[in-house]
Every structure is written in C-alpha cells, then in structure tokens.
Design a protein around this nucleic acid. Sequence first.
DNA 1: TTGAAAGCGCTAACAC
DNA 2: GTGTTAGCGCTTTCAA
Lengths: 328, 328
Amino acid sequence: MPAPTARSVTLDDVARAAEVSRATASRVLGGYGFASVDARDRVHAAADRLGYVPNITARALVRGTGVRLVVAVTGTDATVLDDPYVDRAVAAAARVCAPHGVGVSLEWLPLDAPAGLRRLDDRSVCGVLLVNTIAPVLDAVPAGLRGRVVSIGVGSPAVPSFDVDNAGGTEAVLRHLHAGGRRRIAMVTGPRWLSCAERSVTAYQRLMRAAGLPVRLVTGDFTAARGHRAALTALRRWPDTDAIYAVSDATALGVIAALRGRGIQVPHDVAVAGFDDIPYAAVSAPALTTATHPVARIVTAAASAVLDGRPVPPVTAFPSRLVARESA
Amino acid sequence: MPAPTARSVTLDDVARAAEVSRATASRVLGGYGFASVDARDRVHAAADRLGYVPNITARALVRGTGVRLVVAVTGTDATVLDDPYVDRAVAAAARVCAPHGVGVSLEWLPLDAPAGLRRLDDRSVCGVLLVNTIAPVLDAVPAGLRGRVVSIGVGSPAVPSFDVDNAGGTEAVLRHLHAGGRRRIAMVTGPRWLSCAERSVTAYQRLMRAAGLPVRLVTGDFTAARGHRAALTALRRWPDTDAIYAVSDATALGVIAALRGRGIQVPHDVAVAGFDDIPYAAVSAPALTTATHPVARIVTAAASAVLDGRPVPPVTAFPSRLVARESA
DNA sequence: TTGAAAGCGCTAACAC
DNA sequence: GTGTTAGCGCTTTCAA
C-alpha cells in the first residue's frame, strides 16, 4: 500500500528502510558496483514499497551531466522556429529524452551571431542538436560543449552529422522525372546559405549537366508561400518548363497552388515533385510525388547518441526513398 | 576579454573576483534581498567579465523546483504522439521553456492507466501539460503535482484548463455553411472518449437541432486516413449530404480526397470545412475553409503559467475565428 | 548590509 | 561487500 507521502521519498528513506547505508542503496539502484544478494533484495523491496523515484536533478548535479538538450536552429530570424519540420524534430527529441529524465528546449541561433552557441555552454545542458546549421556556427562550438553536440545536417570534424541522404533522394526524384519524359526541369531551392539544402542543388546540377539538360534554379526558403512565388518566377523565365522539383513538400504544395492558379495542369502540363513526404503529401490534390525524409528517425538517432555519450561516426546518412504518387 | 576557461565559472568564482561572500553574490545576481550599491556593481561586473552562467541544476536542487516540463498526451496507444498537433504543442512549450533553462519531455499516457501520472511525481518535474486529457486522468493527478499541472483541453477543479473555444469555432463554421445554403451537414468527429473534442459535437448537435436540421455524425480520430473513410461512410448513409464539417483540418483533407475520388465536386456538390487552420489549409486544392486554433498561443500561455507558478483561473478560453476559403 | 554555515539529494572515492 | 566522507553549485536562514 503505497502511502502517498506528502514529501517525496529520498534515497535516505530507502536506505533506512532497507537497513543499509545510502551508498549501498545508491549502488544497488544505480546498478553499479557490488552488493550482496540480500542487500540488493532489501533495497529493491524498500524502493518499490516506498515508491522511490530518483531525483534526476540531484544526480545531474553531482555527476556534472546536464539535464536538458537544446535544439538550436540557425536562421536569419526567429521565424525559422515556426517550421513544422522543426516541430517534428523537437517532438521526436522530447520523446527520446523522456525516459532519461531529460527535457528539450528550443532556441533560435541567429545566422550572423554564431557566438550565440556560447550561451549554451552551461553545466545544465547535456547536449545540443544543431538544426540547419552552417560552417561558422560549427566552428564556434565552445570547447566545453565538444562531444555533446551533433548536427542534423552538415557536420564538421568536431560535430558529427546525422542527415538524410539529400543527394540520393534528389537523384531518385530526378531520375523519376526524367523517366517520365521530362526534360526541362526547374528546381526551387532552399535558402542558399544552408549547406545541407545546397547538397540537393549540387546533385541537381550534376545530374542535369550529365544528361545535357538545362539548369534552372529559383531560390526558395522551404515555405509554401515562397514556393508559390518561385513557381511563377520559373514560369516567367522559362515558359517551356515541364517539371518543377522543390526542395521540400511545403514548397511543392505552394508550387502546385501557383500552377493551379495559372490554369496549368499537374502533372499533365508540368510535373511537380517535392522532398520530405509530410503527412499531407498523400492527401493533396494531386497527391504529391516526393522522397522520404525520416526526420523522426534521424533526430532519434542523434539525440540518443548524445544522451548515451556514445562516440559517433562523423557522418550518419539516412537513405531517402522515392514515393511516386500523382503529381509527377 | 572573456578568457574561455576550460572549467565553467561558478558563483564562487564570481564572489571571489568581486571580493564578497558567495551569499552576497547570490543575493545580487538573484535580485533578492539587499546589497550595497558598491557590492552590487562589483558582483555584476565580475559576473559579466567571467561570463558567469548560473547552474540551473544546482538552483533547482536547492529550491526543490524542477527542471523539466512534461507534455503528457492521453491516447489509446503511443501513436497519438505522432500527431502534428502534438509536435506543435511540444515545440511551442520548448520555446517558452528555453529562457527559463527548463526542458520539455513528451510522454504518452495510456487511456486506461491514468495512474501513469504518478510516475511524473518526481522532484525533477516542474510541471505537466496534459494534452487530450480525460476525467479519470484529471482525477488521478497526484497531490505532489497539484498546482503544477494544467490541461490543454478540459480541466477539473484541480487542473486549470487552457483551450480553444471549440463551441464558438464550430458555431462560426456551421453558420457559414448554413449561410451558404447547406442544410444537410454531416460531421466527422474526433475520438468519442475525448471530452474536449466532444464539445464541438455538442455545439454541432445543438445548432442542428435549433435549425431543425438532421444530426449526422461519423466518428473519426483527427487523422486524414480516418477522414477519408468517414466521408465514404457518410455518403453511403446519407447520399444527399451537401456539407461535411470535420473536427480537424487533417480530417477535412482526407474528406476532400475521398470526395475527389468519388468524382464529387468541392464545394459545388459538397462543401467541406475543417478546424485548426494548419499551414497546408491555405494551399490545398480547394483551399480549406476552417476555423483558427492558436495552438502555439494556448500552449505558450499554459506553459508560462506553470513556469511562473502563478495562480490561474480555472478556464482560459482562446477565441476561434472563421477562415473562409474555397472549400465551403 | 554582509558572511558563515547548513543543507538540497545524490554519487563516488576511499576506507573498513 | 559495506559504510564513511566529501563534495556537486547554489540558496537561505541566522548572527554579526
């Protein structure tokens, strides 16, 4: 009968109840060191009976290990935090962290003030997940944070990278477009300062050149609104465009909306493909052809790595798979 | 010149540099109690110079205040955590928590095991945000958590509620449908056990009855897939349906996809309206008519309330506004 | 106005 | 194997 004690039960209470020292109780509960079977049993029994829950805060303090993981998103302004992609990443991180008693907080890292990272060099921070990061930020990682920072995107010698295989996904999509007979394929990119998005652009350029096709780039920013404008721009510059590849599904949906507004049939007149496979890609009209982007899996792996303090290879790439639907 | 000390600087370092005691430094930096102008200045100067960052963990330990906020989502199984709505809520919480040095973790609360909450009665938890909660969970809030738990949805005497005005939003949408000449309006609901979603149903029933119109309910679960099936069901049961109101935008998008699959014109043959105003509502085809659901604002207010430990009124309702687009 | 001192709950040497 | 002891970094009485 777990009497709901007003005050929360501490390790001392457990030790007393089990008639052992606090140190022994700590060892048993922590799974560390040695303890007699007898002591072990008594401690576990007492802990169960009392409903003991270790105080993560105290543990973190003494061990010097932090208690929260910061998701830091680089961008020109704080609106980068409004992206559903960021939402997904944060939620995935918050889910992995829960069993560890660790929480996640979300911060914007100004594009032009990479030193902002220094503020995170705080003993209460157990790790940092860099999102949409760039070289200057990577280079500004404070020594105190070394080994506890990973990047969802490009990495550096000091910061391991966890990312989707942008180039592979892009190639899969472009081959699909090409196989469908498209030859004048424009691309709506992400922000040009963002190196991980730039990898898709590079792949696009390489493939277009290899196939002897024209390179047609319009800059976007991952949003639908910008995709809408970009589609109009592309149409104006290159009226014979027969396909548009967008760097993200949100962008692609904006592109489709713009084409519809112009009375252009998708995919009949112009094929459209995205990247991410967001939930709405399947129900849009027409259903969006895209490539998978396992954000949750990527973030889960990244967060687990920093939580476990396990050494990680410099790059962990997650494959991207084509999802052919109606739009291309 | 902030020498990047390898070891992080502690309050002791600041006190020493300012030539005061640790207690005085603590008072000054904490803004508490009294201190001479002189001491004040010296402490602040030293803190700045040394780049002092208080260790939240230590502070939380001594104050007994926790260090993480748990977002607990009730549902039949863990897939409830996959909802973009949950993502938004977690990200918004993680954003408000950041300046406080507090992190957010995400947990699933099994529908049939409300006692799961007890596990959260942990000194390291500074608060709990209940999402999609139900009465049994509300009643199971442990005494130790009292005053630090709020609900995004229905509340209870012990748990203040922060929520969108479902009834108001529903009414706005239904009046719009009615004004557009629709008279045989079906509704796709949320899970029937979810009381906060049930408020929309109640409002729907009330309005339909008041207008002398038929009540046509199909159960959904907020997902597009279920919305798709529900639309088909509605069409089968009531072939003359001329409008479908869905409890969420995701559901509405599924409904539209289903109608399209049947060759039914939206809004010409059947009008469709959702609820939430998710980003994709504006770019879908046709653009979705819906009602706003300021999730980020709601969660921000709720999280701030528990972070500040401020007493809150039993119910804080956030208005919902009609967004008329093309689908209805 | 300030400082000394006593912890917050826990872990990890180091003795026994 | 087990207990004693010394802190982790900070806040907060309580005296001075």
